[in-house]
Amino acid sequence: MDFPTIVSINYLNHYFGYGVLRKPVLSNINLKIKSGEIVILSGPSGSGKTTLLTLIGGLRSVGEGSLQVFSQELRGASEAQLVKIRRHIGYIFQSHNLLRSLTAQQNVQMSVKLHENVSRVEARIKSEAALKSVGLGNRSDYYPENLSGGQKQRVAIARALVCHPKLVLADEPTAALDSKSGRDVVKLMQKLVKEQGCAVLMVTHDNRILDIADRIVYMEDGQLRKMSNGS
């Protein structure tokens, strides 16, 4: 079965700064990611991995080359077009980014509220179901300060996947976790992603989780150096 292409990047370049201070960050990037695929982006710190992730997520402007997400060209896209695309992307960050003043359920529900025409009752039902899917159904009323690091990251995963996004972007999701918690988190992500049929691009330095990938892409000095199949 030929799965649809979710991300298509051709000859993408990106720079920081202007004039004599302009510095290349990404050079000649070519990459395709398909539905149902987990791709890990590996490489040393400062190689451009997070910058690429933010460009794909519509969080930075594309200057040179072509970057298409859901067949929409992001170069020159309007803010309204970018907002529409972001609604179909789930973001998971290293520091989980939960709001301390909200319960686990309320943190997840915030993601649902980004979508139009969803009632408050439906948003609550969806968020509670998402927390159950990550094994935190009995922690929905807990505040982040009363959750472990692994539990916080599970809430972040529930928040990212609650609206069944077509693409998940994860930036070092296991960096702050111990070996067991990190393994549990990525296994859970792998299970939910396969069930929902979305694509995943994960930035990581964690060699313990490379085996969950369908492909591993290695980046160095702003360039994709090599690719390999996951084990």
Rank of each mutant, 00 (worst) to 15 (best):
F3Y: 14
P4W: 03
S8R: 15
S8D: 12
I9P: 01
H14K: 05
R22A: 08
L26K: 01
S27T: 14
S27Y: 04
L31M: 08
K34F: 10
S35D: 09
I40Y: 10
S42E: 15
L52S: 02
L53H: 04
R60E: 12
S66N: 14
V69W: 02
Q72N: 14
R75A: 09
A77S: 09
S78M: 11
V83L: 13
V83H: 15
K84F: 13
I85R: 07
L99I: 15
R100D: 14
Q105S: 12
S111H: 12
V112P: 11
K113F: 14
H115P: 12
E116W: 13
N117G: 12
V118P: 05
R124M: 10
K126C: 12
S127D: 04
S127M: 04
A129G: 15
A129Q: 15
A130V: 08
L131P: 04
R139C: 11
Y143S: 06
E145Q: 13
S148P: 08
Q153L: 05
V155I: 05
V155Q: 00
I157H: 07
R159S: 06
V162E: 01
C163S: 15
E172L: 03
E172A: 04
T174L: 00
L177V: 03
K180D: 14
R183A: 13
V185E: 07
V185A: 10
V186S: 01
V193D: 03
G197A: 05
C198D: 07
V203P: 01
D214F: 03
R225F: 09
K226T: 08
M227R: 13
